[in-house]
Design a protein around this nucleic acid. Sequence first.
DNA 1: CGGACAATTGAAGCCGGTCAAAACTGGTGG
DNA 2: CCACCAGTTTTGACCGGCTTCAATTGTCCG
Lengths: 239, 239
Amino acid sequence: MLRNTFSEHSRLRTDQLLEGLTMAEQELLISSGVTHLYKKGEIIFREGGIPTGIFYLVSGRVKKFRTFPKGNEQIFYLCTKGELLGYHALLGEVLYPDSAGTIEDSLITFVPKENFLTVLHQSTALSNNLLKALGREFTHFINSITNLATKSVRERLAINLLILDDKFKSGDRAKMPSVINLSRADLANMVGTATETLVRLLHEFQDAGLIKKTEKAISILDRPGVIKEANLGGLKLKR
Amino acid sequence: MLRNTFSEHSRLRTDQLLEGLTMAEQELLISSGVTHLYKKGEIIFREGGIPTGIFYLVSGRVKKFRTFPKGNEQIFYLCTKGELLGYHALLGEVLYPDSAGTIEDSLITFVPKENFLTVLHQSTALSNNLLKALGREFTHFINSITNLATKSVRERLAINLLILDDKFKSGDRAKMPSVINLSRADLANMVGTATETLVRLLHEFQDAGLIKKTEKAISILDRPGVIKEANLGGLKLKR
DNA sequence: CGGACAATTGAAGCCGGTCAAAACTGGTGG
DNA sequence: CCACCAGTTTTGACCGGCTTCAATTGTCCG
C-alpha cells in the first residue's frame, strides 16, 4: 500500500529492459553508443527539440523537467544510474515534450535513433519489456497527479523526501540513511512549491527531529516520522 | 504550441491502434468481446482490482480517477468514444492503479486478457501502435503534472474547459459550441479544487461572458477569452 | 577579501479550502 | 397537481496555508 504512493518500482531499468535480448541486440543497443561525461548542471536535451536517439545513464543523476517563460521549472522525475532517457519522444514520434539535465556529474551513453529502432523492430523481447515498463510508468504518473492535486505542500515534501531517500541510497550500505544532495531550488521544483516555503518546512522537520540538514544535503533521521507526515493513508478524516 | 498544453492528440483511439493488423487479429481483438450497456455512474473497474481484460468504449464517456479515504476523488482523464481502457495494468502486470466509471450511459466491449495478449504477442503492428500511443501519453501526463503544480485554479479551470469543449463536441456539427455535460463535483475533481471554488469561478466566467451555464451543462461562448484566462504561454511575467 | 549565488528569515496579503446554510432541481407518492 | 424529500448547486463568512516581495545571512572560490 505504501508502495503505491511513493515507491519507484516503475523505473525503466536497463537490466530489466534488456532481459531476453540476444547478445547481438544488446551489443547494438548499448555498446554501439558514444559515452560522454556530462558535468553537473548540463542540459541533455530540451523540450521542443528533435529526438535523434536515446540516452543511457551509466552513472550520475538526471532531472526531467518542464520550464516556463517565468523562468521557473517543474521537475517531475529523477533518473538514477541504469535508466534510459528520451525514449518517449522516439516511440511517440514527437518532439521532446520535456527537458533533461544533470544534477551531478554523469556518464551518459548516446544510442542513435536508428540503432534503437532497428533493435526494437526485430526484437519482440524489447517491445514487451518496453510495454511493461510503460504500463508501470502510468502508475507513477497518476500518483504524482493525485499527490499534487490533493495533498498539502507539507505532505508532498515528506513524500518526496522518502522517494529521494531511496534514490540517493549509496549502493554499498543500503541500510544507512541516504544523503540527499539536491539544491533547495531543485527540491522545491520537485515538490511544486516556492523555495522559501520549502526552506521553512525543512526547518520545521529538523526541529521535529525528522531530518538533519548538513551543508547543502539532507538526511532522514526518523523515517517513520516522515511517513507519518506524508499522510499516505489519506488519514485526514472528513471531520 | 497551444497543442502542447491542453490538446488531446495522445488519445488511444482504436482506429489508429488497429492500423496494420490483419482482419483475423482485429476479429480476435474487438469482435470476440462481449458488449454491455453501462448506465451512467456505474463502475467499470476499481483500483486494486485484478485486471482480467481490456475495455473498448464503443459509445459514451468514462472518467478515470483515484479515490481517497476522505471520500473525494481525483479525475485525471476522460475517455470518449473509440478509446481503450485498462490496458496499462495488463501491460505492466500490476493491479489496477486507478478506477474507471461512466459519466453517461455507455456501450462497452470487454476483451478478455488472453485474446488481447495473444494478439499482442503475435502482432508487431499492435506492439508498435501501442508503444507509439504510450509514448504520446507521456506528454499528456507531464502536462497535467505541470499544470497542477504551477497554475492557479482559475487557469486550470480554463484549460479543462477547453479540453472538455473538445471532448464534448457532437460529431455532427463540429463547429458549434459544445455542451459540456458534467456535474460540478466531477468538474471540480478534474480541475483539482473544491466544488465551492469551482462554482464561484464559473460564475465569474459567466459574468465575463466567457461561458454560458445552462441547466447542469456549460457552453463556451468566447473561446479566445477562455484561452486568455488559461494563460497558456505562461505570460504571467516575473514582475 | 570580495563577489556571486544559495539559503534563510521576516512580513504582508491573497488564494482557495472549509464549514454552514440557503436556493434550486428533479423525482415520488399522496 | 401539489407537497415533500434527497441531492445538487449556489452563496456567505472565515481563516489558514502559501506565495510573494524584501532583506539578511551564509558559503564557496577566484
